[in-house]
Design a protein around this nucleic acid. Sequence first.
DNA 1: CCGGTCGGTTCAGTGATCGAACCTACGGTG
DNA 2: CACCGTAGGTTCGATCACTGAACCGACCGG
Lengths: 179, 179
Amino acid sequence: MALGKDYVTQECSIARALEIVGERWTLLVVRDAIYGVRRYNDFLVHLGIPRAVLSSRLRTLTEEGILEKRRYQETPPRDEYVVTERGAALWPVLRALGHWGREHIDGHRLRVFRHADCGGEVEPYGTCAACGTLVPVADVVMVPGPELDSAPADPVSRALLRPKRLLEPLETGPAHLAD
Amino acid sequence: MALGKDYVTQECSIARALEIVGERWTLLVVRDAIYGVRRYNDFLVHLGIPRAVLSSRLRTLTEEGILEKRRYQETPPRDEYVVTERGAALWPVLRALGHWGREHIDGHRLRVFRHADCGGEVEPYGTCAACGTLVPVADVVMVPGPELDSAPADPVSRALLRPKRLLEPLETGPAHLAD
DNA sequence: CCGGTCGGTTCAGTGATCGAACCTACGGTG
DNA sequence: CACCGTAGGTTCGATCACTGAACCGACCGG
């Protein structure tokens, strides 16, 4: 639970939402999942989150239907966490948060989101600046901005340096190739 | 700090934003401030938040320029916390969160947001269903939905039962009249 | 057999939150 | 003046969550 029994008394959809995604780290896990991160270790190195907390968040998000745990190979058994439709529906929240952080706190353009169909930039409210359509999350391409560190330490950040369509799985490649 | 030193390592506007508004209770305080709550005691009874935590959150939000502490009477000295432009800019985040909570978790239409100019409903992405304009937060009127409790216990919730334009101060009235 | 990877769990220490109690400054009443 | 009530806090012990490190089991390759 994000805020315990106290939130339950609140008659408010915002409080309901925060009960589920308001805990520390949770929205960053969802952000990474939408960026295409799917594997336990990739979340771990990219977020720098304690293992116990990551396990707890992945379990909660799976129980809430925001992620789906999926066996992608049998020997050795390996699971991946794939964002569901319910999870992808959090994209507008994350986009709004990122826009607020960029405009009011940070000031840097670390990443740019573009409409895959026409290349137009996705505006703060989710519409394409070029063609005006409301861009669904699956049609968003994330492009690294000019102020993003060009040589990050972890392989996940390196993989995210390439332009990438949201929701599609991230290819981090074998560890021995990343060095 | 919302998530401590760990977030600092993240090159991401979302992480930047969550450092500030990602702590427990913080977004609910901002929500109430946008709803027009301004006084310490009103936050207290409406949120059911521990006093020490409320004091801490109000201080942090003031330091970050999201709220502004303002002396509104001298004897006895009384301060109010008014949401700033930076704070009001979080409205799209809260609207998106509320929409997600309603669509994917709760299912109830507890409150409806309408465009003050034309009465059209504000859609998930912030545009007016009737006239199509992107509705600024100051032009949003909050109307209680049919499923909202019609006789809440605390005076702030009762004051919020009346249709109310966002950002305008909430009139809770004297305590002895609320009974 | 040995080392490495992946996906965890367990555990002690620390920090945050909670709820209650307390405090200050003032105003009103008798 | 004594006393009560309100507004806006602070302080404090108990509890809960997070942190970081260690550990573990299943598997693979050499």
